[in-house]
Design a protein around this nucleic acid. Structure first.
Lengths: 160, 160
DNA sequence: TATTGTTATACTCTATAACTATA
DNA sequence: TATAGTTATAGAGTATAACAATA
């Protein structure tokens, strides 16, 4: 592929209908990014949650699956610094989705649990996620899904 | 898979070695996100560019492939508001990677081109991208790549 | 000495709105 | 009236460093 694609235009112009991405088009990494962007955009649009952010959803889920975990543990699970977790957890608490209790074993620590409301909101988010993922299943095709998932997981596991 | 996985722990504790993600584990959307995160992290770490950001790389590439395009066109190509493009382009210009010329046809417009230095930096980024993508090729397997790419593109095309 | 969580602070990325200069 | 680009401003999201309480 040539480096430049629009040299034929008049010198300082920019009239064109299409923008070209060039060789990135066949890169796995780049297409991974495009697919993930599209997937999240569509998911967030239909999630119903006005505050919906990837970090919030992931946190609710990790807390539900690991009730009583500490902020430090949460910060490791979602790969964020503890100082980033503080405002995130406070915001979830303000919205009544997460309860914070001092740990019995280590008085430095706070333990985290979902409230009833938090369970409900997470369940509704998961319902949207399931619905959204059904769309993805349809696009990928049920026969191809296991292999597709296997490759995605392999990328995460082996890319170091 | 059960909703909560660590109920057996003592009441307010959080001693656990592993954090569980639950049902998201088999969601295409979620695994897409993990794979893309891992891919970008590794790519950025080895890119050599201290200022490396996804937006910068994409902009350099779009400008090289469409020399003379305007900022508005660039903003559409990378899906950002024109007010976000202004500081981005200025930063690329400050680093000597992009040249800005007034348009001959429309005196409101600025046209963009890579400088020699910009071409060099982009070429080096592309070399890293190619090398990085070879790792991904190896992980996915050369036989599986076409189908894998096809599915990623299909997701972008059909997810609306 | 080391760790948990908070705070102060700062930097990046993004957008909206108001502005200018053109069209 | 509409569009290209800049500026002012603001809101997320993130991190580093310093700190208090506790281990």
């Amino acid at each position: 592929m040539s480096a430049a694609t629009n040299r034929g235009d008049s010198p300082h112009t920019a009239r064109r209908s299409e923008i070209h991405l060039g060789l990135l088009d066949d890169f796995i990494g780049f297409n991974l990014r495009l697919a993930q962007d599209a997937s999240f955009q569509v998911f967030a649009q239909h999630s119903g949650e006005p505050h919906m952010r990837p970090g919030r959803f992931a946190s609710l889920l990790v807390i539900r699956n690991n009730p009583g975990l500490t902020q430090i543990e949460l910060s490791r699970a979602i790969a964020r610094d503890k100082s980033s977790v503080t405002p995130l957890v406070q915001s979830l608490q303000r919205d009544g989705l997460v309860e914070r209790r001092p740990s019995d074993l280590d008085r430095r620590s706070v333990t985290l649990r979902l409230t009833k409301e938090g369970e409900k909101v997470l369940e509704s988010l998961l319902a949207h996620a399931r619905e959204h993922d059904r769309k993805l299943d349809d696009i990928v095709g049920i026969g191809k899904k296991p292999e597709f998932l296997r490759l995605l997981k392999k990328i995460v596991a082996e890319l170091r």
